[in-house]
Amino acid sequence: MLKIKNLKADIDSKSILNNFNLEIKPGEVHAIMGPNGSGKSTLSNILSGKKGYNVSGEVLFENKNLFELETEERAHKGIFLAFQYPLEIPGVNTNIFLKTSLNAIRKANGEKELDAIEFLKLVKLKAKNLKFDEEKLNRQLNVGFSGGEKKKNEILQMSILNPKLSILDETDSGLDIDALKTVADGVNSLRKKDNSFLIITHYQRLLDYIKPDYVHVLMNGKIIKSGGPELALELENKGYENFN
């Protein structure tokens, strides 16, 4: 599904990712762990299409060159990023944002757009599963939401859009145990043989609830070790500094 070969990324001539390689197959869950400044967020930014980076190497998503696709085209093809810091958009109703987003993606894929009633039915169901306060859906997008609510809102969007590849950028940071569990349930309910996940995190604890197939350790812009879920535990015990 996703093949990254020799990815190199600079920002303001500062090297962030270097010789980065990763392959994710359909249905797989990969976790990337790394200390602050290791390049985790840069990776999610580049995959989602954020501008401002100087990139080289190759990134293929379903055999298409990702660098030839605009941000929204990547979203249309099924790439979703749960943002580390979800944005506030004043004056824009959360439901309307969700509906606009879903219908933009459906339209791009030649599917019928949902009308208000169909959409509300869908969003109510998903919100209930995620224990997301329905009343919040009528508020301005992320305005006045707590950190946890913002993160849950990302997962709600993910479950509505049902993407092929979901990238979770430190979704667990700032969540209490209950919220963490809800978020994990949301992810697990989307795990299917065609849906893949890339989970970026500092900590092992999210991986207690979402069992990854692979764990990668990212340091200084490249993956220095890959393994199974046990690698995360090892990392948690040793700490990043002593890991080498």
């Binding site: 605009e70 606009t100 933009a104």
Partner: peptide
């Protein structure tokens, strides 16, 4: 970027943000 990541093209994104700004 956030809006585009959710599938909106830049002009749709601006339209949405501006309409939010003007809502009152």
């Amino acid at each position: 970027h956030y809006c585009q990541q959710r599938g909106l093209n830049p002009e749709e994104a601006v339209g949405l943000i501006v309409n939010g700004f003007c809502k009152e």
